[in-house]
Design a protein around this nucleic acid. Structure first.
Length: 268
DNA sequence: ATGTCTGGCCCGGCCAGA
């Protein structure tokens, strides 16, 4: 019995949640942390400056955190209840718009966690779409370096890319959208092809899986969604993948985000 | 085509971004 306990491997639950305004969703966030109990939680779209990040509420929930905010838009934070995240970088190398808070990388429990919020890119064509593609090119370069280093790593967050027809309720409605643009989908495909494992799709190859539903026209009730939040695992971490999915529960709450959290469980 | 939210501006509805 003693031996059994000693050799029992524990699981680490790493989640990602585009919270769409951390201060206006604080009740949703703390409820989700309490109910879902992620060990690591990567948040995107904080929409707050560093000064007004709700550190006390996060700590009261049992998490230590690092964050990179920005006025009005973007913003990423990495929360952990399994040791303080050790920050390794707070932007992609050579991001063409460094003032945008879109990437926060940290070591937690021996895993390198890249928390990302890729540009939306609409309207297409235009400068915002150009920036989306440039940003994805920078991500591609950086991700290749991570794989080359051999470190167990996960790239997790809002990629703002619908990878395939299976990931959208009506593909024909999204043909002109930056999230479903061939140029963006190609880049996502090429990124995965470096050797990353799209954890949720890998474990659920045939399911319709969505992570985002518009607020309007009862999209969530009709399940008219898209899959744009992803978790990519490096080969060494993919070997330890046990389960992965989308937690749709908080999407049904009052005053909630338009995204649902995603999660992976790996053997620690 | 529509639709719904948030934050900013600077105090009451608009605008941009998503």
């Amino acid at each position: 019995m003693f031996l059994l306990l000693m050799t029992k491997k524990r699981r680490l639950r790493i989640a990602s949640y585009n919270i769409n305004g951390i201060n206006s969703r604080l009740a949703v966030l703390t409820r989700w942390l309490a109910e879902f109990q992620p060990d690591v939680a990567c948040l995107q779209e904080l929409k707050c400056t560093d000064e007004v990040f709700p550190r006390e509420a996060i700590e009261a929930a049992g998490y230590s955190a690092i964050w990179h905010g920005q006025r009005s838009w973007n913003g990423v934070a990495t929360l952990s209840r399994v040791g303080e995240p050790v920050e390794t970088r707070r932007a992609l190398p050579s991001d063409p718009k460094l003032e945008q808070s879109r990437y926060l990388e940290a070591a937690v429990c021996g895993i390198l966690v890249g928390n990302m919020y890729a540009p939306n890119g609409n309207p297409r064509p235009g400068p915002k779409f150009d920036y989306k593609l440039e940003w994805m090119d920078r991500l591609h370069e950086h991700a290749a370096g991570l794989l080359g280093s051999g470190v167990p790593a996960v790239l997790i967050g809002d990629f703002n890319v619908i990878p395939s027809d299976r990931d959208v309720y009506k593909p024909e409605r999204w043909l002109k959208d930056a999230l479903f643009a061939p140029e963006a989908r190609e880049r996502y495909e090429q990124l995965v092809a470096q050797g990353w494992t799209d954890a949720i799709r890998h474990l659920h190859p045939d399911e319709r899986i969505y992570t985002f539903w518009h607020y309007w026209r009862n999209s969530f009730q009709r399940d008219a969604g898209i899959r744009i939040d992803h978790a990519l695992l490096s080969p060494s971490l993919a070997k330890k993948l046990k389960s992965a999915g989308v937690d749709r529960t908080p999407r049904g709450w009052e005053k909630t985000s338009d995204h649902a959290p995603i999660w992976v469980e790996v053997e620690a």
